[in-house]
């Protein structure tokens, strides 16, 4: 793959959109994430159990949405970036087989303790437009050219 390029704090413009990320939440992806986090709950892979519990299909761990936002931010910010803060609340469940689309934009910038922080806001929707998450907030530290 191409090595990610460094992005500096001074290069960022408020209002600029981040590249969208489309993620197919296949049952395989949900199981792989559950395994990678040592989360063996039947919610994420056992269709019979999930249907008995009143849901239609195995579903995504809500915090996987946060992990995907972090993936998008760290890719965009380049190898010298460091995620400082991330907060989110899921408004809709994601079921195995659905595709989700993450969209983010730069909502502001700040200098805190000498660090250059890029503030971003994210939404996640399903391919059919259903809302999964609205206005997740992130603060990504980028290197400063002047520091």
């Amino acid at each position: 793959m191409t090595m990610p390029a460094t992005r500096c704090f001074e290069d960022v413009r408020v209002g600029e959109a981040l590249p969208a990320l489309e993620f197919p939440a296949t049952l395989t992806a949900l199981v792989t994430y559950a395994g990678a986090t040592w989360d063996f709950h039947r919610y994420h892979y056992d269709p019979d159990f999930v249907v008995e519990s009143g849901m239609k299909a195995p579903f995504m761990d809500g915090q996987m949405a946060g992990a995907l936002i972090a993936r998008l931010l760290m890719q965009w910010g380049g190898p010298d970036a460091f995620l400082r803060r991330l907060s989110f609340r899921l408004r809709g469940m994601v079921f195995a087989g659905e595709t989700i689309i993450l969209r983010g934009a730069v909502s502001g910038t700040a200098i805190e303790e000498g660090r250059g922080l890029v503030l971003c806001t994210f939404d996640i929707v399903k391919a059919d437009g259903t809302e999964v998450l609205r206005e997740a907030q992130a603060a990504l530290e980028l290197p400063r050219r002047t520091a």
């Binding site: 990678a36 040592w38 989360d39 039947r42 761990d61 915090q63 992990a67 993936r71 760290m74």
Partner: peptide, 22 residues
């Protein structure tokens, strides 16, 4: 990756409960 530390159950040593959660 940033959120791994908050997400991994590698930290915990209890056996899985009846639904697999540890």
């Amino acid at each position: 990756p940033p959120t791994l530390v908050c997400e991994t159950n590698q930290i915990y040593q209890s056996p899985p409960d009846e639904n697999g959660y540890i």
